[in-house]
Design a protein around this nucleic acid. Structure first.
Lengths: 349, 349
DNA sequence: GGTTAGCAGTCTAGCCGATGGAGTGCTAGC
DNA sequence: GCTAGCACTCCATCGGCTAGACTGCTAACC
């Protein structure tokens, strides 16, 4: 396996043709098949020479001497990099996307749930969505409700999400005190982020007497708790059934690994976060061993950030076998991310 | 396949022994193996006669003439019915359950999420939980917040859940009107169910003028919407990865079916609802073709209701292969359901 | 030099038939 | 009614064989 130097144009064309055929068939591709697919006007003998060279360079491998060639992760990388930068989504699919985002949906979480389902339907792979970080979103409303001997802090974010936290009522505080704090202090925190709100609450707490002071201390704590919840239900997964049926995942163990990771969620976070800063173009592709996670899964991830304006809120993406239909996945993810951004922008404005 | 008449004691013992061995090994069980496992003091020849009879009765089947016997769904049913009514959960597992329910958790949904994970860890199968119906739960608080040109209805239920619905502000209504309705009408609805609250809101709407009337009409609509959301995120699934690794699910298609159903959720609802009215004992078991759903999945479901007092709130259960370790599953589900009931009771009191 | 037709060589998937073994059903004796 | 013994059945396994799919190489060709 040698250095990944620049390939000659013909080698690149041959490689792309081979990957294309392999993605379709799933079987080792012979020189004859490549010759017909690549339409270079050269015979299979010439292709054979080139294939041998490409194997030497680390782009291809052979299951055994008298079999065709199978692409390595490196070959997929070349193939993906050579794809048109903005592949078109076929019309029926495009229409499905537009239709989905036509319906008004209440909050970002609901939209993301629907989006993962949409993406799975379009691509037939499992889908992921990274929800916007609570930390950075603005509070539309902060409300403290008294519930008998406890109180409940409700934080309505501009993403439409409502976070809650139940807090004990401090000694000597009554319903009236809770109400006073809710109206007097919390009302003014609209438009601030969770972090800013905490700072204000803490400061205000210093400048007042009991029992407001005690209540504000607990509110501060509750805001911290809400901020910490973030990691918990941050990743939305949809259409996992699709990869259960996928026979590219031959080994059961691999399938199990993926499902476990999807359930643990935190592991997927890093993968999606990394896609938030795309290396090139709006859609980022991670192929097999390019990342430890996808390497272990024997899978690839196609992801794209979404957000409002130039600010990325989160990421959506699909997980599929390394032998994935990258063209379809990339175009679907790209279009859905665009529409999702528009929807989120409309919601948070 | 003949009628499921009452089996002789010996036949029953032989059947149970065979099922027991088969659950352990997964391979067709021969007469010799049954003879050693059943410890009846009779030879394998006698067992052979009985096995032939049991096959005739529809309890067993043979993959081919010279193979051992494999239990049919009917055999599992006998086996399960003959299990001790309150099997003991081994101590380490029992301790894990107690530990889990020792931590105070904020609301029922969070508890259920944790419970499915707990059950999956205990049984190594996928777990389900049916959340309490919103319709029947009491409102702890109903709050109408004004958000610029819209308002948000928040319903805090006694399960700790907060449901929300965004509504447009009617023509001519302002923040003050919203507030007036919130304090004047909604405050009084504490302790009522969603349905009762709707009735009150509708009635009150008639007896008042604009713009309260318009606001109340929309609140009524929003309450209906919240009630309808019920079906959506009603079923919690956990540990699905466990059955992805399970090689009892030989056919990929079967696995895919199960995952699809778990994702659609609504399909699982019926299955769990039916377990809410147990035929006998606290834990209900549905084996393979006993229900169309599990039949298609080639799976079994072990489920038990949970609730406060004598009132069932919902159901928890596990989904596994027909060749499931029923003893372990039943004891785990039973103990977890008991503890969960206690936790929910403490929460809603 | 690059390209190509042709061919020998390699490796596998699939088929065949033989073999060993597991397990049954039946029978005859206890 | 139970059991030892036995003939019989059927499958899983293995080695050997074959057809076929590709390759790599060579020699001729442009």
């Amino acid at each position: 396996m040698a250095e990944a130097a620049k390939l000659s144009e013909r080698k690149a064309a041959i490689l792309s043709a081979l990957v294309h055929v392999y993605i379709r068939t799933g079987e080792p591709v012979g020189s004859e098949a490549v010759a017909t697919a690549a339409r270079l006007g050269v015979s299979s003998a010439t292709i054979r020479n080139e294939l041998a060279a490409l194997e030497e360079l680390g782009y291809l491998s052979q299951p055994h001497t008298s079999a065709g060639r199978v692409p390595t992760d490196l070959a997929y990388r070349c193939y993906v990099d050579a794809l048109p930068p903005r592949p078109k989504l076929p019309d029926p699919e495009r229409r499905a996307v537009l239709e989905f985002f036509d319906e008004a949906l209440a909050d970002v979480d609901e939209i993301l749930r629907g989006t993962t389902q949409l993406l799975s339907r379009l691509t037939h792979y499992a889908s992921l969505a990274l929800a916007p970080s609570r930390q950075e979103r603005a509070l539309v409303r902060l409300e403290l409700l008294s519930l008998g001997q406890a109180m409940m802090l409700l934080a309505v974010l501009d993403t439409g999400r409502v976070d809650k936290c139940v807090i004990d009522l401090p000694q000597g505080a009554g319903e009236a005190d809770v109400e006073r704090v809710s109206r007097g202090v919390l009302e003014r925190l609209r438009g601030q982020t969770l972090g800013e709100a905490r700072a204000h609450v803490a400061e205000r707490g210093k400048a007042t007497g009991e029992p407001e002071r005690a209540i504000l201390a607990r509110v501060d704590e509750a805001l911290a708790t809400i901020g910490r919840q973030e990691e918990g239900d941050h990743v939305v997964v949809g259409g996992a059934a699709n990869i259960a049926g996928e026979d590219s995942f031959a080994r059961r163990e691999t399938l199990r690994h993926i499902f476990e990771a999807l359930e643990r969620e935190t592991e997927v976070l890093g993968l999606l976060r990394q896609a938030t800063v795309p290396r090139e173009g709006p859609v980022s592709v991670t192929i097999g061993r390019e990342s430890p996670m996808t390497g272990q899964w024997e899978a690839s991830v196609v992801a794209a950030p979404y957000g409002a304006g130039d600010r990325a809120f989160g990421t959506i993406g699909v997980v599929g076998p390394i032998r994935m239909d990258y063209l379809a996945a990339i175009s679907a993810v790209r279009v859905v991310a665009e529409r999702l951004s528009a929807a989120v922008e409309a919601l948070t404005r």
